[in-house]
C-alpha cells in the first residue's frame, strides 16, 4: 500500500448546537439580550484518519455514531469546527438523495438541476442523460414531475445521476440504498467498474458482513470517535461481538 493519500482527516471535530426552545425573536435578542439556549452534541470528536487512492473504506457504527456526519465532512457539506481536512481528487456523493431535486420538475429536468449542483455543465449532462435514464429504468416517469414518483423511483434517479459523475472519490451512504434486488445488482456492478478505474470509496453501511467482503479496511465509529480501524474481518468481529453483549 504505497499509493498517495486521497482523504486525510487530522483531529477533525464536529459539534452541533441543538436548540432547546422554539427560538428567540429579534426583539428578545436585542431588548433582553436573550440568547437561544443550546445543548452541544459532539458528532465527531477528534477523528484522525487517512484513505489511500483506490482504497475502499467501510464505515460501521450504531445510529448516531457520526457516520453520516463523517461523510458530510468529507463531502465538504459540513466544514469541520476544528481539525484539518485534506482532499486530493474530485468528490461525488450519494449521501443525500433529495439535495437539489424539485418536486414540480420532471425527472429529466431534475437530472440537469442535480448535475448542476454537483458542478457538471449542461453539455456534460446532455452526454449522460440517456445513460442516466436507462440506468434509472423508470420508463415514462422520467418525463413526469418528481412529485408523482414513489420513494424507490426517486432513489433510482438520484443514484443514476451520482453514478454517472466521473469522480475520483465516491462517498456513499448505503443506509439509503433501497430498491429491488435487480437494481442493487446493477449498482454493485457500476461500483466495481468504478473500482477497477481506481476510484476511492468510502461506504457507510449497516450490512457489516457485506462490507467485510468488499472493503480493504473498516472503520468502527462509536459516539463520534474511532473505536477501531483496520483489517475488515477483525473490526467486523469486534463490532459484532460488542453488539451481542449490549
Amino acid at each position: 500500500m504505497t499509493s498517495p493519500i486521497a482523504l486525510e482527516l487530522d483531529s477533525v471535530s464536529v459539534r452541533y448546537r441543538i436548540a432547546l426552545d422554539s427560538g428567540v425573536t429579534l426583539k428578545e435578542s436585542i431588548v433582553r439580550g436573550r440568547r437561544r439556549e443550546y445543548v452541544e452534541h459532539v458528532a465527531l470528536d477528534a477523528v484522525t484518519l487517512s484513505v489511500r487512492q483506490g482504497e475502499m473504506l467501510g464505515v460501521i457504527g450504531r445510529n448516531g455514531a457520526g457516520k453520516t456526519t463523517l461523510l458530510n465532512v468529507m463531502a465538504r457539506v459540513l466544514p469541520p469546527r476544528s481539525g484539518r481536512l485534506r482532499i486530493r481528487g474530485s468528490v461525488s456523493t450519494i449521501i443525500d438523495l433529495l439535495g437539489g431535486f424539485h418536486p414540480e420538475l420532471t425527472g429529466r429536468e431534475n437530472v440537469y438541476l442535480r448535475g448542476a449542483f454537483l458542478g457538471m455543465s449542461r453539455a456534460q449532462m446532455q452526454q449522460r442523460v440517456d445513460a442516466i435514464a436507462s440506468f434509472a429504468a423508470i420508463g415514462q416517469f422520467f418525463d413526469a414531475p418528481l412529485r408523482t414518483y414513489s420513494a424507490g423511483m426517486i432513489v433510482r434517479l438520484a443514484f443514476a445521476v451520482a453514478a454517472s459523475v466521473d469522480a475520483e472519490i465516491l462517498l456513499i451512504d448505503e443506509a439509503l440504498a433501497v430498491g429491488d434486488a435487480e437494481f442493487q445488482a446493477k449498482c454493485a456492478a457500476r461500483m466495481s467498474e468504478h473500482r477497477a478505474r481506481g476510484v476511492t470509496f468510502v461506504i457507510v453501511s449497516h450490512d457489516v458482513l457485506r462490507l467485510q467482503a468488499v472493503c480493504d479496511r473498516i472503520l468502527w465509529l462509536d459516539q463520534g470517535t474511532v473505536r477501531a480501524l483496520g483489517n475488515p474481518s477483525e473490526v467486523a468481529a469486534l463490532y459484532l461481538a460488542a453488539q451481542q453483549t449490549t
Binding site: R76, P79, G83, R84, L85, R86, I87, R88, G89, E168
Partner: peptide
C-alpha cells in the same frame, strides 16, 4: 488533480 486543504 483537485486539491483541498481546510487550513489553506
Amino acid at each position: 488533480m483537485i486539491e483541498y486543504d481546510s487550513l489553506l
